[in-house]
């Protein structure tokens, strides 16, 4: 590293930051500006002939008025999926970090294994699993755990289950990273200092794992809020999320200005929620 610094001279910092800055400049800042201008353009144009930028803030008013239920649904589904991921992910990450012993690496590989298959294919296979004449539904009906006319596919449950499944690894990995760092001696020290297992968890393990909890919930909640694959493959027209609206405005509707305005609103809402959340969790230093 020192050798590299010498070679690059006193401008080393700029040179090191350069490539990433260039990349982000081209693929983030420019599209962002394009998105913002499109969101303020007159929808009278078309994708082929272009839109004229007229500072048309009514686009925002229109999309909020038309699509607010989709925004609410997105955040509710993403919120439920995040909580489910936290519960499932925390227990699993805890087990991997403290109980897995020599199976630790294997278990971590298994957590990441789904990434070797495409997101789309995995979600499609959920469609098969949850299908009305699939083995799962048949079994549940046989066991009378489900009414005869009940179904799983094309329900909110399926959408939330899909979201939970797809984003679970993003919860587990940061949680594991933070739990694994906790010195087991601290647990012993707490036991020595009159803390029963519950108090040990609450006073030592949980606070020390908070960075992982915050990191994991953000990595789950943010992409889940904007997701449309799960809702479109596993849901029905009444379970559509804001991502589905944006997608159809862009594609079938060819209404770029409204689609862009809805995207910006989604983004702003997520940023605001994340900031409030991180501040409340007392982990600002993560941002």
């Amino acid at each position: 590293m020192a050798a590299l610094q010498r070679a690059l001279g006193r401008n080393s910092a700029y040179l090191l930051v350069g490539p990433a800055a260039l990349w982000l400049g081209i693929f983030f800042v420019i599209p962002m500006i394009s998105l913002l201008t499109t969101s303020l353009s007159d929808p009278a144009g078309s994708p082929i002939y272009g839109y004229s930028m007229t500072w048309r803030f009514e686009n925002y008013v229109d999309v909020v008025a038309d699509y607010w239920p989709y925004l609410v649904r997105s955040f509710v589904y993403a919120g439920i999926a995040t909580v489910l991921c936290l519960i499932l992910g925390y227990t699993l990450a805890y087990a991997i970090a403290f109980k897995a012993g020599r199976f630790k690496t294997l278990m971590l590989v298994l957590v990441v294994a789904p990434f070797f298959t495409s997101f789309l294919v995995r979600t499609l296979s959920w469609k098969l699993i949850l299908a009305d004449n699939g083995w799962l539904v048949e079994t549940l009906k046989t066991l009378h755990l489900m009414p005869e006319d009940g179904r799983l596919l094309a329900t909110p449950i399926a959408v939330v289950a899909g979201l939970t499944y797809n984003f679970l690894p993003f919860m587990i990995l940061p949680l594991y990273a933070s739990l694994e760092k906790i010195d087991p001696k601290l647990n012993e020290a707490a036991a020595d200092l009159y803390a029963n297992p519950f108090k040990r968890f609450w006073n030592v393990v949980w606070p020390l794992s908070l960075p992982g909890v915050v990191g994991g919930t953000l990595l789950t909640f943010i992409p889940a809020s904007g997701d449309y694959i799960n809702a479109s493959l596993l849901g029905n027209p009444n379970t559509q999320m804001v991502g589905n609206r944006i997608q159809s405005l862009f594609t079938t509707g060819s209404d770029y200005p409204h689609a862009a305005a809805l995207s910006v609103i989604l983004m702003v809402l997520i940023v605001v929620m994340v900031m409030v959340y991180v501040r409340r969790a007392g982990t600002e230093d993560l941002l």
């Binding site: 010195d183 001696k185 601290l186 012993e188 020290a189 707490a190 036991a191 020595d192 200092l193 009159y194 803390a195 029963n196 108090k199 006073n203 030592v204 606070p207 020390l208």
Partner: peptide, 30 residues
């Protein structure tokens, strides 16, 4: 946690997220 015995650990095992006062108060509070 039920024994009238306390330990000073080899590498101290202080709780990194708590202040010195909170570390010291840990036992009595529990």
């Amino acid at each position: 946690y039920k024994r009238p015995v306390n330990t000073v650990f080899q590498n101290y095992a202080l709780f990194p997220h708590l202040t010195i006062a909170e570390n010291v108060e840990f036992g009595p509070r529990r």
